[in-house]
Design a binder for these strands. Structure first.
Length: 544
RNA sequence: UGGGCUAUGGCCAAGCGGUUAAGGCAUCGGACUUUGACUCCGAGAUCGGUAGUUCAAAUCUACCUAGCCCAGCCA
C-alpha cells in the first residue's frame, strides 16, 4: 500500500521536480514523556512512508528540551514502537545533542541585537504580553545593551540565577497579532538533571527556538507537524533566517487523527494507568501502540489503516470500524481458521458410540491452502456455543440449533436436537442430539439442507482456554459528558471455554480466526498449561 | 472582539477551471456460501451559504455562516 495523493506529497513532488530540494528528509520528533498512541502513528507513518516513497530518509529525534517532563524510560518504549511498525530511522538523535550549537546561536542572536535577557517574572511577563485582542508592551529590559544581555546570559548559563529569575527572549514585536511573535522566551533556567546531559546545563532552549534549528542542522527538508503549530511557522522561519542557518527547512502542518470511542490524550491515558483503571500502558484495551500490539493488531493493519484514512489539514475523527476493518482485511487470508467455543454448552450425541473419537482432516484456511491442514476430532461429546441454541426456533431467519431442528456441525455431521436436559435451577445442562452418519462433510450428501452451520469442539480432546473479550474503554455519548463518566466498566469480559487440540503449542501473539467468533491473538499470559486469547476484533455480521 | 486555519455523501478523503464528482469505511438491497465471515454485483452527494468572474466553477473573487487553534519560562 502506498500513500495516495495528499497535499504534502504534492508539495514534495513539486519541490523535487523544480529542484528546490534534492532529497526528501523528514523527522519524527516525539517528546520522551509518554507512550506513543495510534494518533502518533499518523505522524510516524506519514514521515517515514513519504520519505521512503521518494527515496529519502527519516530521522528519529527525541525532543528533549524540557528535563522536568522527560525521562529516558520512554525513549526505549518509543524506539520499540517505531521498530515494531517496521521503520528504521536513518539516525536516532536527541534535541539535547544540539545544546551547544543552540547556545551559540542564542549568543549570535544577542550579538545581532535580536535577543535580550529579561528579568520579568512569569506574572509580569503575562501582563506585558497583552491579550488576544490587545497588543503587548515592551519589556523594560528590552533595550538592554548587547553586552549586558550577553554577560547576563553567560551568568544564566553558569548557574548564577535561580529557576525563573531570568529568561532570554527574542526581540520581535510585542504588538504582533500573532502571540508567538511577542518576544517569545527562547531560553529558561531549570536546575534539574537532564536524562542525557546530566547537570551540564541549567538553561534549556524552548521548543520554538530549538526545533527549527535542529531541523536545519539535520538537513530536514519537510518538517511535518500538527495544525496547532500553524501560527508558529512564521517564528520557525524567523529563527532559521536570523540564525543564518545554511540549510533552510520548511514546516508543513497536517490535522491530527482521532478515532471514535477512543481516548487519545496523554493526560487521560496516564490517569487510566495511574488509577489502575487499566493494567498498564500495554493493556490490550489501550490505544497505545504497545496496547494495540499486545491485543494482537498487526503492524500491517496499523499502517494500512493510517494510509487509508488519508491526510489533510483537518483534524479528523475516523470511525473505529475502519481500524477493525483493516485488521480483518489483513488477517483474513493470512491466518489459520480454527474452532474455539467461548461460552460452552455440552452436547451428547446419543447415537454415537461411547469412547469413540474420529479425526477429520481439515484445511486451516480454505482461502489459503499454504497454511496446510490439521485433524479435528468428533465424538459422542461435543461443545457448542450457548448462543447457538434456542429452545424454540424464533423465526425463519434463525440459522442455528433448536429443539427438533437439524444443523451441521461444521466439517463434521448434521445433528438434530431431541432433548434438553435441565439443571435444577432451570438452566440448560446439556443437549441430547443424534447425528446422521450419511451427512459427513465431504461426502457430497445433499438430500437435506441443514438449518445453518455451527462450529464445535470435541469435548474429550478439547483444550481449556480463557478468552478475553475486550470492549471499548469509552462508551458513546453525546459528547457532553467528561471522559471518565463515559468509561465502560465492562470493557474486559472473561470467558472460559475450549479450543481444538491443534492450538496446544501456540505462541505469544500468534493470531487466529476463531471460526464465527472473530480474530484472536494468544496473550502474553499464556503458559504451558494455560491458554489465554485476546479477541482483537469480532467478525463482521449482517445478522440482525 | 485580534490573528491563523478549515468546510466535498453518516465517517475519512481524492479533485487544483471543462471528469457521468475517485476510493475506503459504514449503511441498504441482491448473488454466492459447510463461518449470518470472505467474495461478487447494485444503490446513494452538485461540493457550508450567497453574490460575482467565465462559454464553462467543487475548483477563481467577495461577503456571510459554522468549527478548530493561539494570551506556558509545555511540546
Amino acid at each position: 500500500m502506498e500513500i495516495e495523493s495528499n497535499f504534502i506529497k504534492t508539495i514534495m513532488e513539486e519541490d523535487l521536480k523544480n529542484g528546490k530540494v534534492k532529497e526528501i528528509v523528514t523527522r519524527f520528533p516525539p517528546e520522551p514523556n509518554a507512550y506513543l498512541h495510534i494518533g502518533h502513528a499518523r505522524a510516524i507513518i506519514t514521515n517515514f512512508e513519504l520519505a521512503k516513497q521518494f527515496g529519502g530518509k527519516t530521522n528519529l529525534r527525541f525532543d528533549d528540551t524540557n528535563p522536568v517532563k522527560e525521562d529516558s524510560s520512554f525513549v526505549d518504549a518509543i524506539k520499540k514502537d517505531i521498530e515494531w511498525l517496521g521503520y528504521k530511522p536513518a539516525k536516532v538523535l536527541f534535541g539535547s545533542d544540539y545544546f551547544d550549537a543552540s547556545y551559540d546561536l542564542a549568543v549570535k542572536l544577542i550579538k545581532k541585537g535580536l535577543a535580550y535577557v529579561c528579568d520579568l517574572n512569569p506574572e509580569e511577563m503575562r501582563e506585558y504580553r497583552g491579550t488576544l485582542t490587545t497588543p503587548g508592551k515592551d519589556s523594560p529590559y528590552r533595550n538592554r545593551s548587547v553586552e549586558e544581555s550577553y554577560q547576563l546570559f553567560e551568568a544564566m548559563k553558569n548557574g548564577k540565577y535561580k529557576d525563573g529569575e531570568k529568561t532570554l527572549r527574542a526581540k520581535i514585536d510585542m504588538s504582533s497579532p500573532n502571540m508567538n511573535m511577542r518576544d517569545p522566551v527562547i531560553y529558561r533556567i531549570i536546575h534539574i538533571d537532564h536524562h542525557n546531559t546530566g547537570n551540564k546545563w541549567c538553561i534549556y532552549p524552548m521548543y520554538d527556538f530549538a526545533h527549527p534549528l535542529q531541523d536545519a542542522f539535520e538537513g530536514v527538508t519537510h518538517s511535518l507537524c500538527s495544525l496547532e503549530y500553524d501560527d508558529h511557522r512564521v517564528l520557525y522561519d524567523w529563527f532559521v533566517e536570523k540564525c543564518e542557518m545554511e540549510h533552510v527547512p520548511h514546516q508543513y502542518e497536517f490535522g491530527r487523527l482521532n478515532i471514535t470511542n477512543t481516548i487519545m490524550s496523554k493526560r487521560y491515558l496516564k490517569q487510566l494507568v495511574d488509577e489502575n483503571m487499566v493494567k498498564g500502558y500495554d493493556d490490550p484495551r489501550m490505544p497505545t501502540l504497545a496496547g494495540l500490539r499486545r491485543r494482537g493488531y498487526t503492524k500491517e493493519s496499523i499502517v494500512n489503516f493510517i494510509l487509508s484514512t488519508g491526510l489533510s489539514r483537518v483534524n479528523s475523527t475516523v470511525s473505529s470500524e475502519m481500524l477493525e476493518n483493516s485488521l480483518r482485511d489483513d488477517l483474513n487470508q493470512k491466518v489459520k481458521r480454527v474452532n474455539a467455543v467461548i461460552d460452552p454448552l455440552k452436547v451428547v450425541i446419543t447415537n454415537y458410540p461411547e469412547g469413540k473419537v474420529e479425526w477429520i482432516d481439515v484445511e486451516y484456511n480454505p482461502d489459503n491452502l499454504e497454511l496446510g491442514s490439521r485433524k479435528i476430532a468428533f465424538g459422542r461429546y461435543v461443545y457448542i456455543e450457548k448462543e447457538d441454541f434456542l429452545e424454540e426456533k424464533p423465526n425463519k431467519k434463525w440459522k442455528r440449533l433448536s429443539l427438533g431442528i437439524e444443523v451441521r456441525l461444521m466439517q463434521a455431521y448434521f445433528i438434530k436436537c431431541n432433548e434438553i436436559v435441565f439443571n435444577e435451577d432451570g438452566s440448560i445442562k446439556e443437549l441430547h442430539c443424534t447425528y446422521d452418519e450419511k451427512t459427513k462433510s465431504g461426502s457430497g450428501f445433499d438430500e437435506r439442507k441443514p438449518n445453518g452451520n455451527i462450529h464445535f469442539v470435541e469435548a474429550t480432546t478439547a483444550l481449556p482456554a480463557t478468552f478475553n473479550l475486550l470492549e471499548p474503554l469509552l462508551i458513546d455519548s453525546d459528547g457532553k459528558k467528561d471522559l471518565f463518566s463515559r468509561l465502560n466498566l465492562n470493557s474486559w469480559n472473561i470467558f472460559n471455554g475450549f479450543v481444538e487440540p491443534s492450538l496446544e503449542k501456540t505462541h505469544h501473539l500468534e493470531r487466529f480466526q476463531f471460526i464465527r467468533k472473530g480474530y484472536f491473538a494468544t496473550d502474553y499470559d499464556t503458559k504451558d498449561n494455560k491458554l489465554v486469547f485476546n479477541r482483537i476484533v469480532e467478525l463482521k455480521t449482517s445478522f440482525k
